[in-house]
Computed example of a mutant assay.
Amino acid sequence: MWFDSFSDLVRVLLVGGAAYITVVVLLRTTGKRTLAKLNAFDLVVTVALGSTLATILLSQSVSWTEGALALALLAVLQTAVAWVTTRRPGLRAVVTARPRLVLRDGEPLHDAMRAERISLDEIRQAVRSSGTGDLSSVAAVVLESDGSLSILSAQQYGDGSALSGVEGVGR
């Protein structure tokens, strides 16, 4: 349908404006972590915030108050999970995957790659993107908890202390 009524349009403008302001205020008060690209849990919260905002805007059966409460609940839960996992590192594994070594000293770690469902072509692409043309000059490639690949060249490797906590290091 192209048009129902002016009252529907006015509702979208008024409730949409109020919901937008609510989201901005919540994001500013809960900090950068709420929309950070850190892990699957953060992605789920980000998608849920967007879905909730869309529901507030388009569903007449959801009042602005109900929507604002839902947005606030998501932000508070995200903040609570972040707070708990920074104070209880053991619980972090419940919410976040550990980073994993997928290439060491230019050699692909096929078991790790298979477990993480990542191909050698994806590793090569990441290495090329880092400005390196030779796998043998790469000390480590890490599949991070957010799904990105970090590349450490042999020159950048240093003492390797940045790899502390990465699964597959030290084996």
Rank of each mutant, 00 (worst) to 15 (best):
L57V: 15
S59N: 12
T46W: 04
A40F: 08
V47K: 00
A54P: 03
L49G: 09
I56V: 15
V44R: 04
L58F: 15
W64Y: 14
G50T: 09
T46P: 00
T65I: 14
L58M: 13
L35W: 09
A54W: 10
E66A: 13
A36W: 03
F41R: 02
A48H: 06
V44P: 00
T52L: 08
V44L: 02
L58I: 12
T55V: 13
A40I: 06
V44Q: 00
G50R: 03
Q60V: 03
T34E: 02
W64C: 01
L35E: 06
L53Y: 13
S59K: 13
T65E: 12
L49R: 09
E66P: 00
N39D: 14
A48K: 04
L49V: 11
L53F: 15
S63G: 15
Q60L: 00
S59A: 13
E66G: 15
D42G: 06
L49T: 05
S51L: 09
T65S: 11
R33Y: 11
T65H: 08
F41L: 07
T34F: 04
V62M: 13
N39K: 01
L38H: 14
K37Y: 11
K37Q: 14
L38E: 15
A40C: 07
R33M: 10
W64V: 15
L43P: 01
A48D: 06
A54Y: 05
T55L: 15
W64S: 03
V62N: 04
V44E: 00
R33G: 14
V62Q: 12
V45P: 03
S61L: 01
V45L: 02
S51M: 05
S61R: 13
S61T: 12
G67W: 07
A48I: 01
L49F: 11
L43Y: 09
S59H: 14
F41P: 03
S61W: 05
A54T: 12
S63F: 05
G67R: 10
D42C: 03
I56R: 06
V45H: 01
V45I: 14
T46S: 14
V45Y: 01
S59W: 10
S51F: 08
T55Y: 03
T65G: 08
K37E: 10
V62E: 08
A36N: 04
S63T: 15
D42F: 02
V44N: 01
A40K: 05
V47Q: 03
A48P: 09
L38N: 14
L53K: 02
L57Y: 13
F41C: 05
V62G: 07
S59V: 06
A48W: 10
F41K: 05
T52H: 09
K37M: 10
E66V: 11
A36T: 07
T65N: 05
V45C: 05
W64K: 04
T52P: 01
R33P: 04
G67L: 05
S61Y: 04
A48L: 10
W64A: 13
T52A: 12
G67Q: 08
A40E: 07
L57S: 09
